[in-house]
Design a protein around this nucleic acid. Sequence first.
DNA 1: CGTTTACTTGAATGCTCTCAACCAGCGTGG
DNA 2: CCACGCTGGTTGAGAGCATTCAAGTAAACG
Lengths: 221, 221
Amino acid sequence: MTAAFSGTREIPHDREFIREGDVPQASTVLLSGFAARSRELSDGKRQFLTIHVEGDFVDLHSFLLKKMDHGVVALTRCTVASVPHERLKEITERFPNLTRQLWLSTLIDAAIHREWLVSFGRRSSRANVAHLLCELYMRLAAVGKADKFQFRLPITQGELADARGMSIVHLNRAIKGLRELDLITWLGETVEIKDWNGLASLADFDPNYLKLDMRRLAPLE
Amino acid sequence: MTAAFSGTREIPHDREFIREGDVPQASTVLLSGFAARSRELSDGKRQFLTIHVEGDFVDLHSFLLKKMDHGVVALTRCTVASVPHERLKEITERFPNLTRQLWLSTLIDAAIHREWLVSFGRRSSRANVAHLLCELYMRLAAVGKADKFQFRLPITQGELADARGMSIVHLNRAIKGLRELDLITWLGETVEIKDWNGLASLADFDPNYLKLDMRRLAPLE
DNA sequence: CGTTTACTTGAATGCTCTCAACCAGCGTGG
DNA sequence: CCACGCTGGTTGAGAGCATTCAAGTAAACG
């Protein structure tokens, strides 16, 4: 049923390919690259709401929510595919199992939001950053893009700062802190977690919320 | 189809009636009172993830996510009803429309999470509090529990602080700031928004995310 | 090469937290 | 009836955290 995808598209780096206020007629799956859901305030400040990795539906919720309450920006070059909402409607009419799988996928998005809320509200800046690294490692490993506690993270500190709700400078110092604690190394674009247990315990990280065991990599196969 | 409710229950004030780690066999609807989804960190800090008002499903996501990644605590005396997951399963097998309605309800939860993320990450403390007041006013008005820019909010500043990711003292000063700007009054348990436009513009509040027009008050009628 | 982009660091400012005290209202028990 | 203790709200002060501004470094690119 890869026929559910109507052709793939390349998105250049830095392009906001879905905009707040849009009413998409199709939902978009990220096939490669990194993207972020993004919200901008009237004073110009930007907040990312999730970082997406390959295999993620970036706006499945627009199927029912209609109008986008945030944009989606390509943090790297991305390739994406679309699933028309009409097709999703058919699925919900005829395939309850698949429907629940799609629903589950949006529920995991919400679980990630909740974990970020905890990070923003109650974790120290180091723990906040540590938590994101743990999350990304687990999610990337689940799609074969991380291994042996290493992964490529080709996104800037400015973008990471927008993902953590902090300033660039402060994010930088938080990373420095993690390095000084000997928890990670970060050379160029590759992150290595030197001490997973240490990092996870600093971050109070429990991977259960990601439901990696329940996820199907390609929900529409 | 109110038969979907299997009897109502009273929950005393302050009781955590769903706990992190639980695997509920039914989902719970809040029929009256205030409740909050709550997560506790190992150092004892607490973060609320949503405040629920009457009419809300507090853990519909447990139908598919199975294991709770947070608790739910009664902020006031509450009355709740349960919908067995078996019943929900039937609905997803037989009633696509209803299924989409339930799915939508969890998508709105996620939209609220996103708005909180923006508040925590990028809004000033005053704007953060202002945004919550705007949100609660709109949601309470939608269920007939707010009117003429007034509503009862019978929850403590300690609880509000946990809902905003800040300390009690700082929350108190943020409220003080809103009072000094002549945006609100707050006498005992009743909040009055004296200047809706002022409050909403300080908070950068746009009610679209709540999808009040799409919501059915009782999704199971 | 010179320019640009990203990372890093220092310093000053301002925001937020903790600690501590005080006040008001309320319910309890004497 | 009043004294007491409890809870919740409010304020002050100091310490610590995070932001901004600014400068310097390094790698990437035309």
